[in-house]
Simulated assay, not measured.
Amino acid sequence: MPNAHGIIPRTLRPGIYAPIPSFFLEHSEELDLQAFEKHVALTATAGVGQVLAGSMSEAIHLTRSERVALIKAARRTLDTAGLTDRPIIAGIGAGSTRETIELAHEAAEAGADYGIAIISGYFAGAIAGNKKALKAYWKEVSEKSAIPVLVYNYPGASGGINLDSDIITELAKECPNLVGVKLTCGDVGKLTRIAAVVSDPSFTSLYPRKHANAPFLVLGGYTDFILPTAMVNGHGAITGLANVAPNAVVKLFKLCEESCANPSLLSEAQRLQGIIAQADATIAKASIAGTKALLERLYGYGGKPRRPLPPIETSVAQALWDHPHTQDLVRLEQELSKI
């Protein structure tokens, strides 16, 4: 059923989603939409979902018109590839609740199916310990958004604000237009507690979502705990590593899901989880610039972050590429991409 704005979001499914980087032309720092569209196609073909204008996308460095341009380009690319049923999740977090809601409306008009909202850390000193204020942000955003919304919990990008499992499960129960959470806090215990509530068979009937095709998903923010996530009835991950090795991360997710029903697959899932977890920890230390350097090496595009975020030093980029954890991941990705 369409919502009050006439929008029917595409189905939101468990799986692997990549926060797609924003690519910039070297001298002008204008958006490089050609590279962006290539990367959307590459990740989508591997079975990875697209999250735009988030932390990896350098959303803080994007204008509102650039956010719209990226959403439109991604939708065009997916449709051209015949992936018309693939949803787009767009970052809508801003300094104020008011602007977050405005960004949600703009994202919807541009073609996004879902928004993902992080709370600003600018006034973290006044907000971090105020449960009422924290809940009020996502309540109002989800109530007034033209599209369903995911909670984005990332202390590193929000001045240390770190939602606990009680706040998140309360929001899930009280806000029918909230459809998930991304936990870039890396807290597996928190993920387990939230999944125990929202993945219980009774949750859907007691707390139905606004859209039946948009259940509440519990998603990790890294690839190093995809196996534990599956074992506690979580739903996958939104992870930067899926930009570098989309086939490997999707394979791991599928194998972990299958392992829940077929324990004979568990040892292989553990093997892949080990390779991917090691690579995730190594590559994450190099941040956005490191990921872009690896994309340049692997796929021929990547470039530099937008200033003032510094580029990776040439020697550091080479060391990242040569690192055994990176090379193990590259070999795995190359093997799987040939299957």
Rank of each mutant, 00 (worst) to 15 (best):
E30M: 12
L31H: 06
D32I: 05
D32G: 03
D32R: 10
L33Q: 04
Q34M: 04
A35Q: 09
A35N: 05
A35R: 10
K38M: 09
K38D: 10
H39K: 10
V40A: 07
T43R: 06
A44P: 03
T45S: 15
T45N: 13
T45H: 09
G47I: 15
G47Y: 15
G47L: 12
G47C: 10
V48A: 02
V48M: 04
G49S: 05
G49Q: 04
V51K: 03
L52C: 09
L52T: 04
A53W: 01
G54K: 01
G54S: 03
G54M: 00
S55E: 02
S55D: 01
S55R: 00
M56Q: 08
M56E: 02
E58P: 15
A59V: 00
T63R: 10
T63F: 07
T63Q: 09
S65A: 11
S65H: 02
E66Q: 10
E66R: 03
E66A: 05
E66L: 05
R67W: 02
V68Q: 05
V68L: 01
L70N: 08
L70W: 07
K72P: 00
A73D: 08
A73R: 12
R75Q: 07
R76H: 07
T77S: 08
T77G: 04
L78S: 11
L78I: 08
L78E: 12
T80W: 00
T80Q: 05
T80S: 13
L83S: 07
T84E: 13
R86D: 12
R86M: 10
R86Y: 15
R86H: 14
R86E: 13
I88K: 02
I88F: 09
I88Y: 02
I89S: 06
I89P: 03
G91V: 00
G91L: 00
G93L: 06
A94F: 10
A94H: 12
G95N: 11
S96L: 06
T97V: 12
T100Y: 04
I101C: 14
I101W: 15
I101L: 14
L103T: 08
L103C: 11
A104T: 04
A104K: 09
H105Q: 07
H105K: 05
E106A: 11
A107Q: 06
A107R: 06
A107E: 05
A107C: 06
E109A: 10
A110P: 14
G111M: 04
A112H: 07
D113E: 05
Y114I: 07
Y114S: 14
G115Q: 12
G115S: 13
G115V: 03
I116N: 15
I116F: 14
I118Y: 09
I119L: 09
I119K: 03
